[in-house]
Design a protein around this nucleic acid. Structure first.
Length: 261
DNA sequence: ATGGTCGGTCCCCGA
């Protein structure tokens, strides 16, 4: 089965681009981020016509995540546990699907950006990452096939950006953020890309500004983290770089894994 | 040629 993660940067504006890619790549599951709409505005019919079941956690204008699955969605949960009433961002949705070889749990994650670093946006990011790690730990204890996929807004290694000097003061490159991502991995996850490929200079995001795509000025911030049970089934990983050259592209491209599952 | 972006709550904010 093929599982994709893709920050689409508005599901409504991007709909023709997304459906075109889905028809070509034919992923079985898609973890989508930055849908930028409320649940009722989500274009359900267009994706149902392509054979997907859908779980959505939307909000007005910003953020928003969804999971599309050709397998039945047995249950889904909106929001990352551990938040209080002040956290109204739609950044996490989790679902259990019925794959051919049994149930699989997936999350679609839009981790906070955290810029600028000297504001409460950065502390929100770090708190959110702590909550994610705590929740991920409880999920790992289930010893299931588990995939945490999404836009992590973390430049984990120097090779994950075109020029570390340019990113040195950015919230995506902050040592605390990179350490927290490492701590999440250390709980027992396998990063699909690092496991199967791991070459430098393969990016998943190119800014719309400053001709970043044309100049090759990208960063690698979209990841699929696998539990040991899911990692055992990992066959391949692919960054769908061509999607950045489509008409009306997202600034992120899909990352796709193939699981023997 | 000293610029060069998108999207949405649309002229300002978030990325």
């Amino acid at each position: 089965m093929k599982i994709a993660t893709w920050n689409v940067n508005s599901v409504r504006t991007r709909l023709p681009t997304i459906t075109k890619w889905l028809q070509e790549a034919r992923p079985d599951v898609v973890c989508m981020q930055e849908i930028k709409c409320q649940d009722a505005q989500f274009p359900y019919e267009a994706f149902e016509a392509l054979g997907y079941n859908i779980a959505v956690h939307g909000q007005k204008a910003y953020n928003g995540v969804a999971i599309l699955s050709k397998y039945a969605i047995e249950e889904s949960t909106n929001g990352l546990p551990g938040g209080d009433e002040t956290d109204d961002h739609a950044r996490y949705i989790e679902a259990v699907i019925s794959a051919d070889q049994g149930p699989m749990r997936l999350a679609s994650i839009y981790l906070p950006n955290g810029n600028p670093k000297d504001t409460d946006k950065f502390t929100y990011k770090l708190n959110w990452m702590h909550r994610l790690r705590a929740h991920a730990k409880t999920l790992l204890a289930f010893e299931e096939k588990l995939v945490l996929a999404g836009d992590y807004n973390v430049i984990f290694r120097d090779e994950d950006c075109w020029d570390p000097k340019v990113w040195a003061d950015d919230a995506l490159f902050a040592p605390e953020v990179r350490d927290e991502f490492a701590a999440l991995m250390w709980e027992g996850f396998t990063d699909a890309w690092l496991e199967k490929d791991g070459r430098g200079h393969e990016y998943t995001f190119w800014d719309y500004q400053r001709g970043a795509w044309q100049r090759g000025h990208g960063i690698h911030i979209d990841h699929l983290l696998l539990s040991p049970q899911a990692a055992d089934a990992l066959q391949s990983v692919h960054i769908a770089k061509d999607a950045r050259a489509m008409d009306k592209p997202s600034d992120h491209v899909p990352v796709v894994i193939e699981l023997d599952a």
